[in-house]
Simulated scan of single mutants.
Amino acid sequence: MLVSPYTVAARYRAEIRQEIRSLGTPLKVVGFLGGEYAPSLTYANYTKNACEELGIDYELRQLHRLDLEQAIVAANEDPSIHGIMVYYPIFGNEQDRYLKDMVDPRKDIEGLNAFWIRKLYQNERLVDGARAAGKAVVPCTSLAVLKILEANGAYGASGTRPAEHKTVTIFNRSEVVGRPLAVMMSNDGARIYSFDEQGPLLYLNGKATETKITRAEALQQSDMVITGVPSPSFPKIKADELSEHTICLNFATIKNFTAEAEAKAELFIPRVGPITVAMCMRNTLRLYRTYFAKEHKNTVA
């Protein structure tokens, strides 16, 4: 029986709420929205509700996209703000990458700044600086995927190689979710086939190599299939493409599996959104303890 994303998120929220109460200091998160993209509005509402439940002050700032850069700079310099979120896409091109790097890494609760991405790709799991020490943060949706798999017994909960001997196919290689997820799972021991419009790559131990494997071959080999293709033109994965006992997860807003494939899967996970938001709140607390707290107590696990 599926342990739902809501159940997993509730567990983390309870832990985070207790930690926040112990701080004795109010935390503040600011979200920046640069358009009317419906999924971004939904995500912003999820974030607002989660913050209110946990006792975090949340403010949504809706601006023209051309004003976002200066607004992020101002938030970086504002000592009352401990976490910054930007709801992407803003421009839908390389300018979004530029905005991600504008966010101060100390306030980047989504873990998308190049500082954190570089640590992830180098498999550096700790912050090690002259003025700070703590655990590194990673992109929230990628982490949410691992947490829901772990909660459902599909991913190891301990050890340095919790995905050893697993073969996984991921359809999505964005810098926001798919590529970080491939690196994280391969660092944990999995063999990852990563697909996007540029073709397949094979990830082993955090490193990518070229491969000529086909979609059909990768799916037949896979213990897990994870998809996040936000396009209705993506050819949905069919039941006859999957091996028996495959675990399937869809984190896109659009269904990437047919109903028959969902039914055939040993476990089908339709979304991770609630956990993604919980991971953002977890990162908020982690960054506060690393960079802003005067006294470091126990960091959230």
Rank of each mutant, 00 (worst) to 15 (best):
G153T: 05
G153P: 10
Y155I: 11
G156E: 06
G156P: 12
G159S: 02
R161G: 11
R161V: 10
A163E: 04
A163D: 06
A163H: 13
E164R: 13
E164P: 14
H165A: 07
H165W: 04
K166I: 08
K166V: 03
T167M: 05
V168L: 12
T169I: 03
I170D: 01
I170R: 01
I170V: 02
F171Y: 11
N172T: 14
R173H: 07
S174A: 04
E175M: 08
E175S: 10
E175V: 14
V176L: 06
V177A: 03
G178I: 02
G178Q: 11
G178N: 13
L181C: 04
L181Y: 11
V183P: 13
M184I: 14
M184F: 11
M185G: 05
N187C: 13
N187H: 01
D188A: 09
D188E: 11
D188L: 14
D188M: 06
G189F: 03
A190T: 09
A190R: 07
R191C: 13
R191V: 05
I192M: 08
Y193W: 01
S194K: 00
F195Y: 04
G199T: 00
P200T: 02
L201Q: 15
L201H: 11
Y203T: 00
N205S: 08
G206M: 09
K207M: 09
A208I: 15
T209Q: 10
T209H: 10
E210A: 08
E210R: 15
T211L: 07
T211V: 08
K212L: 12
K212S: 10
K212D: 04
I213T: 10
T214E: 02
A216S: 01
A216R: 03
E217G: 03
E217D: 15
A218R: 07
L219S: 07
Q220L: 05
Q221C: 14
S222W: 00
S222I: 04
M224S: 15
V225E: 07
V225A: 07
V225K: 06
I226K: 15
I226V: 08
I226D: 09
T227F: 07
T227S: 08
T227M: 08
T227L: 04
T227H: 12
T227Y: 10
